[in-house]
Amino acid sequence: MSSLWIINKAGGLIYQAEHFTHPDPSVGRLSSNEYLVLAGTLHGIHAITSKLSPLQQHSKVNDTGLESLEADGFSLRVMVTLTGEFKREGEACSSSNLSLPSSSLPLPGTKFVLLTQPSHPRQATILQKCYEIYSDLVMKNPFYTSEMPIRVEAFDRAIESLLKR
């Protein structure tokens, strides 16, 4: 079982793919609206967790926030790309070359979220692969507008073959 979400910088769900067989197709499916709400909530939780550490003000490293969440029935893993903007000790430090308007709040990168069964061994690798496919097939596609929902056939195909393996 694995399911991939991609959450854009503003916290909107721009891609969601499920690749597993439901035991009972009649129950348990969430509507797309519910997924949007869940993704937004996860975005918020992620922002909070990146502020939780009391040492954060003094540490040289940026706290990236929630990385994984373990439960009895599933395991969730978050990967944040380095394309966001961070602010550290008063100086505006951006890790991206995009000229985004610098705000007082850190602007996180795009989040890749993977949901699998517990103790899945290759979560991080799969996420890395997803990012690779994303940059190859989505970002180089002239018909895709960044930060918008991803409707790219080749991407769907590639993600499917990756997650079903």
Partner: peptide
Amino acid sequence: GSISVPKEM
């Protein structure tokens, strides 16, 4: 190679 044309086109 890296372009997929949307359905309407």
